[in-house]
């Protein structure tokens, strides 16, 4: 445990000081401030922010994470040459990425939104949801990053794989859902589609967020079905737990490879 804490502290400090992370924070800050000022008021700006959270966060987490692990290769070796278990090094890497990336989110998106919420208390709830889901997505895609970087030996191929993971979750998967929907359009599909949504972290995050912003109520019968699923506390807990599972699975798979890996 103390080993983990030491590695984690060093990694967090290292990532927090990197210009990449500063740039990422500023980018989020800029996007949030611009959307709040020019993207309309309250919920509408938040809806635009949903897109930032759903697209940018996973992309940055998985790409930055993957490249970071490749860059840290020699340092990982140095750490492993110390009397330290591989688990501590691996989790230290994960936390060292996920914590600063989450902090960037909290500062960049949360900061301006808190200012907004102080004037308009109705913003607190969507703000909390946005940040919670954002942090969970960061965890998920940092885990993917670690998994990819451990599994793929070569840096450029790892970078490509990271992009593929992102693309698969944001675009390809939804294309497949649509294909399923059109193929089986004569069947009641609300339930199967909900299941499919649960299996893709970005879809799950998107639906949870959209339902927070009351869009579902406007979307007729299907919207009501979805709202009933996610609108309850139980549904929300299920969704958040599923996002944690989405982070845990690649994290665990990556660890299994990391444990046997030859450096």
């Amino acid at each position: 445990m103390t080993d983990l804490r030491q590695v984690l502290a060093a990694q967090v400090r290292n990532v927090l000081r990197s210009r990449w992370l500063v740039g990422y924070t500023l980018l989020l800050l800029l996007a949030t401030v611009l959307l709040l000022r020019f993207g309309g008021s309250g919920t509408r700006a938040l809806l635009s922010l949903v897109n930032v959270v759903l697209l940018l966060l996973p992309l940055v987490s998985v790409v930055f994470g993957t490249l970071y692990v490749y860059n840290a290769r020699e340092f990982i070796e140095l750490l492993l040459a110390q009397p330290v278990g591989r688990g501590a090094v691996y989790l230290g890497l994960f936390g060292g990425l996920a914590i600063p990336l989450s902090l960037a989110l909290l500062a960049g998106v949360g900061g301006p939104l808190v200012v907004e919420a102080l004037q308009d208390p109705s913003v607190w709830r969507p703000l909390a949801m946005l940040l919670t889901v954002g942090v969970l997505l960061t965890l998920v895609f940092t885990a993917f990053a670690l998994c990819v970087a451990v599994l793929v030996e070569e840096r450029s191929r790892g970078f490509g794989a990271a992009l593929l993971v992102w693309l698969a979750c944001t675009v390809v998967y939804d294309g497949l859902i649509l294909l399923v929907l059109t193929t089986f359009r004569d069947y009641p599909l609300e339930a199967p589609v909900l299941v499919l949504t649960f299996l893709n972290p970005i879809d799950l995050a998107r639906v949870v967020l959209l339902l927070t912003f009351d869009v579902a109520l406007l979307m007729g019968y299907t919207g009501t079905v979805f709202a009933r699923m996610f609108g309850t506390a139980g549904g929300l807990v299920a969704a958040f737990s599923m996002l944690l599972v989405c982070a845990a699975v690649p994290l665990w798979a990556g660890y299994r490879w990391f444990r046997r890996k030859d450096f």
Partner: peptide, 22 residues
């Protein structure tokens, strides 16, 4: 090791401190 690469943003003293704590 053959190639010496440490976390870019840390100082040498921080690296030494880390290794000592480990």
């Amino acid at each position: 090791p053959q190639a010496a690469r440490f976390p870019e943003q840390l100082t040498g003293r921080e690296v030494l401190a880390l290794v000592r704590r480990l």
